[in-house]
């Protein structure tokens, strides 16, 4: 019997070690990714990369930078996030505070957004592209913004939905019992989840700035910083993708450096999100 319990306990120990190794592999992969991008990208990183637009012969290794792509991505992601927030937050409020959150409409709408969240961006991109051809619009910043907005609305709706769930039921009832309309009550409740809303915004922004498949067909590529909405614009992920497929080592190096810049942007977003959520643990997403 003692032998038996020993072997059973040994089994437990072995299982524990295997689990630790598995966890280590998963966390290790994150450090491996960031580490390799850092290792390859740092030697090619220069001030010119982030302050200049591509000059003549940039794509055969001559001087210039990717300011066009950085700004293009920032414009695109900011505009798309803003639109997604403007559309997403009212929908979420409507689903939770205007109609009962466990009604059939609300439940099926939430299911719809969950499912929409899963649609790959290449499908959005392909459809947006066919609509644009049909309407005779060429690839442009506006096309990209609209496509990415569609992509980010489900994120905003779902995140805000989770946030609204964290509001104490009492607060909802108190505002109503004092005679506030649903609209006034919503404004007060939004104030309560303020930091959470900011987190939702960052999440959406992160997804918007990193997406390639959606902008590949709809936004095009340009060496200039976009001035108007109907101009094609470069985006950072696409710049990485194009430069990486070049056979010239110098250009490939710039792809690594561009990847490093994108990584930094994403890490900044992640860190901000983390600080915000840990500051206000109640509104954890």
């Amino acid at each position: 019997m003692t032998n038996n319990i020993n072997s059973r306990l040994r089994k437990e120990k072995i299982a524990k070690v295997i689990m630790q190794i598995a966890g280590f592999c998963i966390i290790g992969s994150l450090f491996l990714i960031v580490g390799i991008i850092l290792y390859k990208g740092v030697p090619y990183l220069s001030w010119d990369m982030i302050t200049e637009t591509p000059k003549g012969g940039f794509y055969i290794g001559k001087s210039g930078g990717i300011l066009n792509a950085i700004l293009g991505s920032l414009y695109l992601a900011s505009a798309a996030t803003l639109l997604a927030i403007i559309i997403g937050i009212p929908i979420s409020i409507y689903l939770n505070l205007y109609i009962k959150s466990d009604s059939i409409i609300s439940r099926s709408a939430k299911l719809m957004f969950d499912v929409l969240y899963g649609i790959p961006s290449i499908v959005y991109g392909a459809i947006a592209f066919s609509i644009m051809i049909w309407l005779g619009i060429r690839a442009s910043l506006l096309g990209g913004i609209l496509t990415i907005t569609l992509l980010t609305i489900p994120i905003v709706v779902r995140t805000v939905d989770e946030l609204i769930k964290t509001i104490p039921e009492d607060l909802k009832n108190v505002t109503k019992s004092l005679g506030a309309t649903r609209w006034e009550s919503s404004l007060i409740l939004l104030k309560y989840i303020k930091t959470g809303l900011f987190t939702a915004m960052l999440l959406a922004f992160g997804r918007a700035i990193g997406d390639v498949a959606g902008v590949l067909l709809t936004t095009g590529f340009s060496d200039n910083i976009p001035k108007y909405l109907d101009e094609p614009a470069a985006t950072l992920p696409l710049a990485i993708f194009f430069q990486l497929s070049s056979p010239i080592p110098e250009v490939q190096g710039r792809a690594y450096a561009s990847a490093l810049i994108l990584t930094c942007i994403i890490l900044i977003i992640v860190i901000c999100t983390h600080i915000l959520t840990s500051k206000n643990n109640k509104q954890k997403i």
Binding site: I36, I37, F241
Partner: peptide, 19 residues
């Protein structure tokens, strides 16, 4: 850290894959 992994854009995974 796992959330960070989720936040990385797919193109960075691609770069890592290629490199």
């Amino acid at each position: 850290l796992i959330n960070t992994l989720a936040a990385l854009p797919s193109v960075l995974y691609g770069v890592w894959g290629v490199l």
